[in-house]
C-alpha cells in the first residue's frame, strides 16, 4: 500500500500548491487594477488642437479622463471578481473532495464491467 499513500501524501501536499495559481492571479490583478488608473491619471493633460468633439454644445462636453478610468477599473473589477469567485468555488470543491475521500474508501466505479457502450 505504500505507493498508494505516497501518492496521497503528494496530493495532500499538492493542495497548497494548487491554490498558488489562484493567489498569484489575485496578486497580479490587484497590482494591475491599482496601477492602470493611477498611471493614466498621471498623464499630461491632452492639449486639444484637434477638431473639437462634433455637434456636442460646448458646455455639454465632459472631461473624458474620469470615464476612461471608470471604464478600465470596471473591466478590472469584473475580471478580478470572477477570478476570486472561481478560486473560492475551487477551494470548496477541493475541500469536499478531500473530506469525501477521508471519510470512507469508495470503489472505483470505472471498472464496472457493464459500462454503457
Amino acid at each position: 500500500m505504500p505507493a498508494m499513500s505516497l501518492r496521497n501524501r503528494d496530493r495532500g501536499g499538492g493542495r497548497p500548491r494548487r491554490a498558488l495559481p489562484a493567489a498569484l492571479a489575485l496578486a497580479l490583478a490587484a497590482l494591475l487594477a491599482g496601477a492602470t488608473p493611477a498611471w493614466a491619471a498621471a498623464q499630461p493633460e491632452p492639449v486639444n488642437e484637434f477638431v473639437p468633439i462634433d455637434e456636442l454644445p460646448e458646455e455639454d462636453r465632459l472631461p473624458a479622463a474620469p470615464f476612461l478610468i471608470t471604464a478600465y477599473s470596471i473591466v478590472w473589477i469584473l475580471a478580478f471578481g470572477y477570478f476570486w469567485l472561481l478560486s473560492r468555488r475551487q477551494a470548496d470543491v477541493e475541500r469536499d473532495l478531500a473530506e469525501l475521500a477521508r471519510r470512507r474508501p469508495v470503489p472505483d466505479d470505472d471498472d464496472d464491467p457493464l459500462e454503457a457502450a
Partner: peptide, 28 residues
C-alpha cells in the same frame, strides 16, 4: 498562461497612452 495574460495587461496601458487621439472623439 496566467503570467502571459498579466504581462500583456501590464503593457496595454503603455501602448494605449502613446496612440494618437482619434480625430473627432478625443481621449474618450
Amino acid at each position: 498562461r496566467l503570467a502571459v495574460a498579466a504581462v500583456m495587461f501590464a503593457v496595454a496601458p503603455l501602448l494605449i497612452a502613446q496612440a494618437p487621439y482619434e480625430a473627432t472623439m478625443g481621449l474618450v
